[in-house]
Write a protein that binds this DNA or RNA. Sequence first.
DNA 1: ATTACATATTGACAAATTTCTATTTGTGTG
DNA 2: CACACAAATAGAAATTTGTCAATATGTAAT
Lengths: 101, 101
Amino acid sequence: MELTDKQITVIFKALCDENRVQIFRLLQNGEKCACKLLEAMQCTQPTLSHHMKILCDSGLVVGRKEGKWMYYSISPEGTEIAVNVLRELTKVSDSGECCCK
Amino acid sequence: MELTDKQITVIFKALCDENRVQIFRLLQNGEKCACKLLEAMQCTQPTLSHHMKILCDSGLVVGRKEGKWMYYSISPEGTEIAVNVLRELTKVSDSGECCCK
DNA sequence: ATTACATATTGACAAATTTCTATTTGTGTG
DNA sequence: CACACAAATAGAAATTTGTCAATATGTAAT
């Protein structure tokens, strides 16, 4: 399962905005409906919808529709992928010195 | 050691750009000087300098000056912090249902 | 069907980001 | 000192992102 550089940026874009970080905090207690998230956030409904789209695109959050409502939750699978990608990208396999010495 | 939401976004901004993802790949073999990175990248020197600043600000990369040269490498400490933050933010402590049912 | 409600989409605008060229700063050498 | 080289900074242009008001879509209830 190889991710492109582009896909990697999409994952971490989820965490590049303070509002979205706050949304993660709200989701830590379990699944929440959009309306409940909206109450807790200082933004309009379209703005929240926009952020939720970015979060779902990242794979770190999953949405579930139930009647009129959208329920969002943190995805353990997405989380695991993100952690692995981060570990992979920052893994150092020290192989020799730089030439510029 | 508590990080603000703002600081968290700064960490993950490092990984929000394809060029910077590429730089991580280049640094995986160990420390590299800026001039060597520049050779491998498709951008100008000021652009690389800009990206390196963002990477250093994130704490995921550290720079070391030696004479005229700047040497950059992946920071194991910064990496560990980033992984911990990611784990922390995406940790679910399931405490009850949403009210909107 | 009509109404009410929850969410998504559209379009516009402001702010932030990326990129470049030109210039400056810092360091070593003849 | 004067020159060359590496890297950073300044400033401007192009692009992307975040935000909102307005509107559309989907769902349930009367």
